[in-house]
Design a protein around this nucleic acid. Sequence first.
DNA 1: CAGCGGGTTGACTGACCAGTCAATCCGGGG
DNA 2: CCCCGGATTGACTGGTCAGTCAACCCGCTG
Lengths: 209, 209
Amino acid sequence: MASTAPHDSPPAPDKRRMILDAAVVAFATRGFHACRVSDIADEAQVAYGLVYHYFRSKDEVLDTLFLERWDVLLEVIAEIDGQDLPAREKLHAIASFIIDSYRHDPDLMKVIIVEVTRAANSFGRTHLAKIREAYALIADIVEKAQADGSFRSAVTPSFAALAFYGAIEQVLTGWIFDTLAQGEAEFDEAKAFIVETICGGLDAAAAGR
Amino acid sequence: MASTAPHDSPPAPDKRRMILDAAVVAFATRGFHACRVSDIADEAQVAYGLVYHYFRSKDEVLDTLFLERWDVLLEVIAEIDGQDLPAREKLHAIASFIIDSYRHDPDLMKVIIVEVTRAANSFGRTHLAKIREAYALIADIVEKAQADGSFRSAVTPSFAALAFYGAIEQVLTGWIFDTLAQGEAEFDEAKAFIVETICGGLDAAAAGR
DNA sequence: CAGCGGGTTGACTGACCAGTCAATCCGGGG
DNA sequence: CCCCGGATTGACTGGTCAGTCAACCCGCTG
């Protein structure tokens, strides 16, 4: 077997990718700071030096992981915003995407949230602008909803975006640190609860809803 | 003057306190990880070794700062809960306390939030339980409000607590990293907005509200 | 089959820093 | 005036890693 193709096993043992994937595991397991570059190399079954062949530094590995994923998030939000849906459903779709991202690859989301998004210090600082883009996109959705009257204007759009994203992040954090029960049921419940809290509010005031 | 008292200048150059205060500045400025113990000692104008006379480790310094403050927070929440107020006003009081804490000592709050609360990894891990106590206290308030009918039961109390606290933390984070305008006006506005978002919701559904 | 060069290896170096410790200082008894 | 013990000092040690680099492997080309 395998005479024409150079290899027929995995299309190509893309070492760069292997390193990236290994880094996700390593960072998720030990945390970025506690994780040594050699942990990444070991996990990837690759020599120490190779990490530096593909990346300028340990930081760049994390940068890459974050940007790869965050850019997808930004695209998805923009796309959702483009659809013709009630604002409430747009928010639900965004919450869904983020929560499903966690469901598919908890380690990756853990790294992004714990080491970048929630670490605006050390690391996230570099990415503050990128992170803010997401807030801005969400604020846009709220702003338009306020303009067409489907959302009240009691709160500024950017503030609403903060609260919305904040709720999502808290929930993910709860799962990440086992402070909150997780499972298929909880994932869907969380999506609904987040939207219900932010959009519906806690007050019973207008009972009917 | 001052012949009876041992000293009459500052009541007592409580070195331990000086170290703690210096640590707040040092941690806030450089971040816990990037901050060296010698930075703390320098800032406190005290010899390096003295830090280890009063604390077992650099970690213990941060622990102390966090616990000192968080315990106050827990007491305050409990006290607020004890008062006879509408749930909405209790939440407003809690948001006020936290935001005023930031107004009063931004560096300390920065350290607590950035290095402990939002760093459930590395550090916060030790304090997860303590942090959760705050959530639980808030959830209690929501639960009672649901029981007496002033809050809807569309969402679980613990979930509402998460969203509420999450909103506060996002706002503080915004101020800490200059992502959000801050000032006296903004502080009060934020208190109102947080409560308005969580309690009132974004939906225009029942216009009156 | 020699030579080239990118991919790969892992030992090694330079920096950095938390924590230790022996020495010094100083106030208060005795 | 001397001694004791806690407070204070800061030089030094041990260990840890990120990042470097010289050498090696191997497929391909001429």
